[in-house]
């Protein structure tokens, strides 16, 4: 695939809609297309978080497994969503397993590459942060709601 069409895909992804073209080019320089069959793992707990996935099709479930309870899925990301927030903060390590539940097509962004570019160009860094912060806040809020276990009977 040419870099041009990759750039267009990234530009059309929910996370980067309206993103400055020069910055988009920098992001695109770190990106590649990936395809993951249903049931395959994109990453495992403890692995280095060296990629960010911008999902185009399919769905990726984030799991934690506990002895005796099996794997518990606490979040699933679909088209237009991003997973891989661990790329932002040291020690850049995945805290969960990420498994494709359907055939998944995504843009994979090399985290180390993007970190380097953000470090070199703080304007890019700030713009990228502005895109990732809402996702982090939304996910934190959703986690709190899940913690409340609102549908439970609580008696």
């Amino acid at each position: 695939m040419e870099i041009g069409s990759l750039g267009k895909i990234i530009a059309a992804h929910d996370l980067f809609i309206g993103f400055d073209q020069a910055f988009l080019d920098l992001v695109t320089g770190c990106a590649k297309n990936v395809r993951v069959e249903a049931g395959r793992y994109l990453f495992h707990e403890g692995d280095p978080a060296d990629e960010i996935y911008l999902i185009r099709e399919g769905r990726v479930a984030l799991e934690i497994s506990a002895p005796g309870r099996g794997s518990m899925v606490f979040q699933a990301a679909g088209p237009g969503e991003a997973i891989g927030l661990s790329w932002l903060v040291p020690p850049y390590r995945w805290n969960y397993d990420g498994r494709s539940t359907d055939l998944t097509r995504a843009i994979s962004v090399d985290a180390a590459c993007l970190r380097r570019k953000c470090e070199a160009d703080h304007d890019l860094g700030f713009a990228v942060m502005q895109r990732f912060m809402p996702v982090i806040v939304e996910r934190l809020h959703a986690t709190r709601l899940q913690l409340l276990d609102v549908y439970g009977s609580h008696v």
């Binding site: 769905r59 479930a61 518990m72 899925v73 606490f74 699933a76 539940t101 959703a142 899940q146």
Partner: peptide
């Protein structure tokens, strides 16, 4: 809100 591994749908809050 949470699922076992065989669930292939959305996981997360309804909002």
């Amino acid at each position: 809100d949470h699922a076992t591994a065989d669930w292939r749908g959305h996981v997360g809050v309804v909002t």
